[in-house]
Each structure stands twice: as structure tokens, then as C-alpha cells.
Amino acid sequence: MTRQLVARLLHAIAVCAVVATSVFVLLQFAPGDPFATALDGADVPPSVRAEGRARYGFDLPPGERFARWTGALVRGELGYSASRHRAVADVVGDALPRTLLLVGVALVLGFAAGVGIALVQTRHHRRWQDRLFGVLTLGGVAMPEFLVALLAMTWLGARWRLFPVAGIGSLGDAAAWPVWERIVDLLWHLALPAGALALAVASRVARHQRAALLGVMREDYIRTARAKGLGEWNVIVRHALPNAIGPVIALLGLALPSLVGGAVLIERIFGWPGMGLTLFDALLARDYPLILAAVLLATLLAVVARTVTEAVAEFVVPRRAREP
């Protein structure tokens, strides 16, 4: 067990090192300047831009910059974001919890809804419920995500005013509110972005879960369970689901890291400044330290997420774990 853990850790470090190096190398080829957009005023002389580059060490040769950057990283310093005039750690510290909240809520909602839909579809296999949800979930996967978000914002937000258009909280000093009010306000603002994201997650989960359930339903032990006179719901939920949910959890575990940065368009449309938007803005601003930090974080999350999902899948599905 310990040996496995150490091996995993070493693997994770190796992966991070490869990512850091390749991103750094890639960025060397990107045209642009960390100060191009920040200092775009009509009368900013080139000398001021040159000073800026020198201040943050962008004028050094790439090799030296890389050495400096990795050195700082080893000491736990992520550097300074020139496009935001803030420490990278602060920027990431703001953005990461927001994304984890958004993605977390969307995953929980989407997973629950998706599994629920799949159960209904399995129960009513080949009947209208199955077909209806089949079409809906197919649409949920096939529709471009940003369009769903835009439609939700325009109609549910701006037109019908059912939910806030954008933002992460109401006006006022949230620190002074009672805890429940803060939670309600947060969920209220999460409704559209998390809903739009959850729609996509639920559709994918439902499609995979349905397929997995139908596969399991053919197994002998299901027939045995039925023969014992158990109700159909009972058979599906108690017997089929535990054996069919493992692959879906694994799928989610794989999806999580890319969701952390991949919600960029949803974050952008709903003014939810999380990691995706931060990385996107950093890419456009050529804010190298911020890009590197965000990418490393995503890698780290991927490694963690995979380990956790593997553990969860083993825990949930002991039978599968014993299979070769």
C-alpha cells in the first residue's frame, strides 16, 4: 500500500515536471508580450515597456527564466502576475474555490440527475419515458454548451428575471449577513451557471449509466433476484445499480480535472471568475507565471482526482475490484 502510494507520488511529480517544462517551452513560441495589453496607452513609450519587462525578469534568456521560476516553485513561490498586479497565489486562491464550488455543485447535481434519469429509463426500457429522456439527454450532449449558457442568461436571467444574470453574490456586505442568508444567496447565484453545467454533466452521466445498467440487467444474478419475487425498482436500484455505477464514477473522475478549467465559457458568460476564466485571460494576456501556475494546478488536480475516484470506485464496487 505504502509502496503504491510512493510510486503514485513519484509519478505525479514526474507528470507535473513534464507539464511545467512543456508549457514553458510552448509559451516561448507564443507571439505577444506580457505588457502588450496592459500598457497599450497611446503615449506609453517603448522604454516604459522595456522597464516593465526588466522588472519581472522577462528580458532574461529563457533558460535562466526557467531556472528562476522552478527555483521559486520549489520554495513554494508561484510568482507575480503582471497582468493583475497581484501575487499569483492570491489570484489562484480567489479563483480556485469558486471553480471548485461551481464544478462541485454541477457534478453533484448532474450526477444525481443523470443516475436518476438512467434508472427511470432502465425501468421503462423501450417505452416512451426511455425514448423521451433518450432524446433529451442526447440533445444535452449535442448542444454547444456556450449556447445553452447564453440562452439561459438571456431568457431565464435578463428576460424573465428568474435568476441573477451573472456574478457570485448580491450587493452588500455579505460578511454581515447570517450564514443561511449567505448560503441562499450563493446558491441563488449559482443556479444558472451550475444549472447549465449540470445539464451537460447529467446528459452524459445518464447516457453512460443507462448503457451500463442495461448491460448489467442481462446478468444471471438479476434474473435470480427477479425470480426471488423482488419488485423491478428494487432489483434495479439494489442489485443492478451498485454493479453498474463504477464505470460512471470513473468517468466523472476523469472529467473533473478538465471541467475545472473547461468551464471557461460558462464562467465567462455568467461572470463567475474561476480557474477557467483565469487561465483563459492569462493566456490572452501572456501572463506566463499565472498560466504556468494554473496549468500545474490542473495537473495536480487530475492526479488527485484520479486517485480519489479509483479509491471510491473500489469502495463502491467491491465485486468488480476482485475481478482481474
Binding site: M153, G157, A158, R159, P164, V165, A166, G271
Partner: peptide
Amino acid sequence: VVFLFAAQGATVAARLLAGE
């Protein structure tokens, strides 16, 4: 005065249209 920020142009206008 409170400034609310959103990177997407459509969102900036939607906030006004929604009365936010």
C-alpha cells in the same frame, strides 16, 4: 457606486436589461 464586472459583452448588457 458599485461596479459589477463580466467579461462577456452580452452579459454586461444583460445586467442592465435585467434591472440588476
